[in-house]
């Protein structure tokens, strides 16, 4: 069950709008502060962590960076305060990382665009009010024919399809978006026709820092639980943290977490300081998500049999970690981004 009431409260105290200006009812904070908040939330609940990151780093960042002043004024205040929930629809059954394969089409019809197509694996879609949707306005141009739209749940022709049953982040709401002659006012086009690909890619760079912070938080949360468990659990007449082999494994995990932390904060600071951050975001996401997977797997091991059962949170954290290596660009794609910068 997604904790919708707590999520709305996050909006009320200003977490969802943390990095946006007070003129849009944001908190007027910076990206690093926001990243720290995603990390803290994810220490406890990675599902809420990703819902938060998708709303703030993807949906709202796209509107804030590429939306017109009218669009920002209309949509950001409700999203900043949690009165509305945001979602970001790029992925389709035939198009994930390869955005040129988007099949959703938008056809201009007077003052409207008519959208037809299907999105899948869209975080927050079952609970969202405000979507950023990518659709082809001219398929013959490939990625240069992709455009971005702000679509409201209330618009005719948009519905939610299947809600996914997942390995981890189980309370996060992830599902399909189906558009059948969905009528979107032309004023809801973001930027210009054909600018969608750039908007999607640059927004995802920021989203990756959010996923990296989520992964970092999961690793730290699992480590905290494991330290507490190792002080309690006795074997051979002593608490298991007294065994040097286990101590050293914990030291190695701590080092992994700190490596990840510096990369995550560095990426957030690059974004703050207006520097290019595609590469630092890719590095942060790759290292932090691998760290989360490794640390949580080891934390389960430290718990022994108790780590494998659902009574202890590390079991969930290990399952939650896996997706951080996959979504918002797999770690293989992160390597493409990093090496691509190298050999340009």
């Amino acid at each position: 069950m997604f904790p919708i009431d707590q999520y709305k409260k996050m909006g009320e105290i200003g977490l969802l709008g943390l990095p946006f200006g007070t003129e849009y009812e944001g908190a007027g904070g910076d990206y690093l502060s926001y990243i720290l908040a995603v990390e803290e939330i994810s220490k406890v609940d990675a599902s809420v962590g990703i819902s938060y990151s998708v709303q703030t780093s993807l949906n709202m960042s796209a509107i804030s960076t590429y939306g017109s002043e009218d669009q920002k004024k209309k949509y950001l205040p409700d999203l900043c305060t949690g009165r509305k929930i945001g979602s970001f629809g790029l992925t389709e059954p035939g198009a994930g990382t390869d955005a040129a394969g988007v099949r959703t089409v938008a056809v201009k019809d007077g003052d409207n665009y008519i959208l037809n197509g299907q999105k899948c694996f869209i975080t927050n879609s079952p609970i969202a009010d405000t979507f950023v949707i990518f659709a082809m306005t001219d398929r013959s141009k490939g990625t240069k024919g992709l455009s971005a739209f702000i679509v409201e749940k209330a618009f005719p022709g948009i519905s939610i399809g299947k809600i996914e049953d997942k390995m981890g982040i189980r309370s996060a709401q992830v599902g399909e978006i189906i558009m059948e002659d969905c009528v979107v006012p032309a004023e809801n086009l973001m930027g210009k026709e054909g600018k969608g690909f750039g908007i999607a890619m640059k927004t995802l760079d920021g989203g990756r820092i959010g996923v990296a912070a989520q992964a970092l938080g999961i690793a730290e949360g699992a480590m905290d639980h494991t330290i507490a468990y190792m002080k309690e659990r006795k074997q051979f007449g002593r608490a298991i943290h007294k065994f040097q082999y286990l101590q050293f494994r914990m030291a190695d995990m701590k080092a992994k977490i700190e490596q990840a932390r510096y990369l995550v904060y560095k990426a957030a600071m690059d974004k703050n300081n207006g520097k290019p951050y595609a590469e630092s975001a890719a590095l942060a996401k790759m290292v932090a998500s691998d760290c989360a997977m490794e640390v949580t797997t080891n934390c389960v091991q430290m718990h022994g049999g108790y780590g494998f059962i659902k009574d202890y949170p590390v079991e969930r954290m290990m399952r939650d970690s896996k997706i951080t290596q996959i979504y918002e660009g797999t770690n293989e794609v992160m390597r493409m981004v990093i090496s691509g910068n190298m050999f340009r």
Binding site: I13, G14, G26, G28, G29
Partner: peptide, 9 residues
Amino acid sequence: RYMQMKNIF
């Protein structure tokens, strides 16, 4: 109440 983010800044 919990602190408001904007007031923290």
